[in-house]
């Protein structure tokens, strides 16, 4: 339970900065840091398990943390959680964020031939009732604040599936002035389903991967297994318009705040896409100080030496 916390202050946190209420022991932190280092080695420094975006994903609830600090109760809570995981991974309530061609394949997946109902998945058109968002299709700068707002409206715990190259990286539209280069630049994505469009069967496979992930996630197996985030299917040669995905340690600090504010200020008309009122600083250039990944690596070295 403890290790999945994210820090409310920074985007990218080191294990030591985890919330005090449920602070891990030193041994745990060390093994965790190792897992993190392994993960960054495997995934090319892209994914760090605790580097979750503020406001996008947080299971931290002070009351719950207090309750489970009572000795013995955590065992009971863990059992209940396992039950909940089993339930939620077998009854996805899917919110279809279907914008374009991939949305048609999503409809085909929900319709008669493939039939997502077989795995207990139900499609609901409102975010308040759903726990899985399937982003199927291109997301543009005009749509992105809406997607972010709908994501924020979904109750925790929630998961996101990026279906199709457009949702993953922007596809061949990624260099165009109006297209967001991948939804993981503003939503944390759990499962990537590649293809243009992916076949309905492929989507089903992706949902099965999500089921596995949910089962491993809450008790920490997922994080400890060295594969904290699914690898984004892309080659190194892609230029990504200056934006880094959520969870990247080098991501500009004010970016998530700017995106959140822009999505909150949606109105009928007017300037609504830039988080206009507040100054969030330089969003595109990496920070001056050495990136968090380097800092983490240095720290890791220090722990090993001592």
């Amino acid at each position: 339970m403890a290790v999945t916390q994210d820090d409310p202050q920074t985007d990218a946190v080191t294990p030591d900065a985890a919330p005090t209420d449920a602070a891990p022991t030193d041994a745990e932190a060390a093994s965790f840091a190792e897992a993190q280092a392994l993960a960054s080695a495997v995934l090319g420094g892209v994914a760090a398990p605790t580097a979750l975006d503020r406001d996008s994903r947080s299971y931290s609830n002070p009351l719950l943390d207090k309750v489970i600090s009572v000795p013995g109760l955590d065992v009971a809570v863990a059992t209940v959680e396992r039950l909940l995981d089993w339930a939620s991974s077998n009854s996805f309530f899917i919110f279809p964020m279907a914008t374009s061609c991939c949305g048609i394949e999503f409809m085909a997946a929900a319709a008669s031939r493939v039939d997502l109902d077989r795995m207990g998945a139900i499609i609901r058109p409102t975010p308040r009732q759903c726990d899985v968002m399937v982003v199927a299709g291109t997301i543009t700068v005009k749509m992105a604040p809406r997607v972010r707002k709908l994501w924020d409206q979904m109750p925790e715990p929630k998961w996101c599936v990026a279906m199709g190259s457009c949702a993953i990286s922007g596809d061949f539209y990624r260099d165009i002035y109006s297209v967001v280069p991948g939804v993981d630049t503003f939503i944390p994505v759990d499962v990537y389903v590649p293809g243009c469009p992916p076949n309905p069967e492929e989507l089903m496979k992706g949902l099965k991967r999500l089921q596995v992930k949910i089962g491993m996630q809450r008790d920490g197996t997922w994080q400890r297994s060295g594969m904290p985030a699914e690898a984004r299917p892309e080659t190194k040669s892609l230029k990504l318009g200056g934006l880094l995905r959520i969870g990247d340690p080098d991501r500009a600090a004010g970016l998530s705040d700017a995106q959140r504010d822009a999505s909150r200020s949606l109105g009928f008309d007017g300037a609504e896409h830039r988080g206009a009122d507040e100054d969030h600083g330089n969003l595109f250039d990496p920070p001056e100080s050495p990136p968090a990944s380097q800092a983490a690596a240095a720290e890791l070295e220090a722990t090993h030496e001592s």
């Binding site: 914008t99 543009t140 749509m143 809406r146 061949f172 539209y173 165009i176 002035y177 109006s178 297209v179």
Partner: peptide, 10 residues
């Protein structure tokens, strides 16, 4: 315009 992908420019 929520799906304006700039096809003509591309």
């Amino acid at each position: 315009g929520y799906l304006h992908r700039g096809v003509e420019k591309l």
